[in-house]
């Protein structure tokens, strides 16, 4: 018996630039983007200042929680990043959770998590340049001594790599473990049912009912939430760190 762990399927190819392959990953993102935007628009429909509806209260709680999280992590100047952090969170979370809707989780694709991590990387470098100037930014790579320049470059580049691989690895491992457990439960079902002399009945993987739900609770719900939270937290911390010089200058 073979258990196949596949990469994302290529669904179609756009015949420009030598053929752009559109994989499951991107289509899944489109589907979830539509769902997220629809829900967001529904949540903010006819908002009122007084005697608010339940959905408006929910939307306000979500935004308040996000604002508070960003405020606590990044300070007041970081509040303008709250919408990006929220977007990153929902994109990451929906990508990881999409497994329970039968999709291949798009965050189990290194290209997606690398895209998230590169945005974070660019944001940190941009903020660093903006806050301490191009000279200061170059100088920050020479600290404490120019001898450490290679190490500083590696450590800066390691940040997005580690973010990308952590996220990808957690979600991908979840899908692998889930697939293995499904396979194992199918084999176990066949063993349990082998006394029945009927090939069809023997092939019913009845143990697959229920048991994988516990795994799903961890790998889909908890794992998805944790990874989304971690990538948002790291983004906030790194960007706030890059802004710290600016804040210090503002205070002085």
């Amino acid at each position: 018996m073979d258990i196949n762990i596949q990469g994302p399927k290529i669904l179609f190819t756009i015949p420009v630039l030598g053929g752009i392959e559109i994989s499951e990953t991107v289509v899944c993102q489109w589907i979830f983007m539509v769902i997220i935007i629809a829900v967001a628009l529904w949540l903010v429909r006819d908002m009122k200042r007084k005697s608010i509806s339940g959905k408006q209260a929910a939307a306000e709680i979500i935004v308040n929680m996000l604002n508070k999280l960003v405020l606590d992590t990044m300070g007041k100047t970081g509040l303008k990043y709250a919408p990006y952090i929220g977007t990153l969170f929902i994109m990451s979370f929906m990508g990881s959770i999409s497994g329970i809707f039968g999709f291949r989780p798009y965050t189990a694709n290194i290209a997606v998590t690398a895209a998230f991590a590169l945005v974070t990387f660019v944001m940190t470098q941009y903020m660093s340049i903006k806050s301490s100037g191009l000279k200061g930014w170059v100088k920050s790579y020479m600290e404490p001594t120019p001898l450490l320049l290679p190490l500083n470059i590696i450590s800066n580049l390691a940040t997005p790599v580690s973010i990308a691989f952590r996220h990808f690895g957690n979600i991908f491992a979840g899908t692998v473990v889930t697939a293995l457990v499904y396979g194992a439960l199918a084999s176990l079902s066949a063993v349990v049912l082998q006394w029945i002399p009927n090939a069809f009945i023997n092939s019913i993987p009845f143990l697959q009912v229920g048991i994988p739900a516990v795994l799903s609770l961890y790998f889909d719900w908890f794992g998805a939430f944790m990874q989304a939270y971690i990538i948002c937290m790291l983004t906030m911390v790194f960007v706030a760190d890059a802004c710290a010089v600016e804040d210090a200058q503002n205070v002085a």
Partner: peptide, 20 residues
């Protein structure tokens, strides 16, 4: 299909950026 760990899947990366 794409590779399981496919670092050449640049278009997915670009599309992810656009989508984000």
């Amino acid at each position: 299909t794409r590779g399981v760990v496919d670092l050449t899947d640049v278009w997915s990366l670009v599309f992810t950026w656009c989508n984000l």
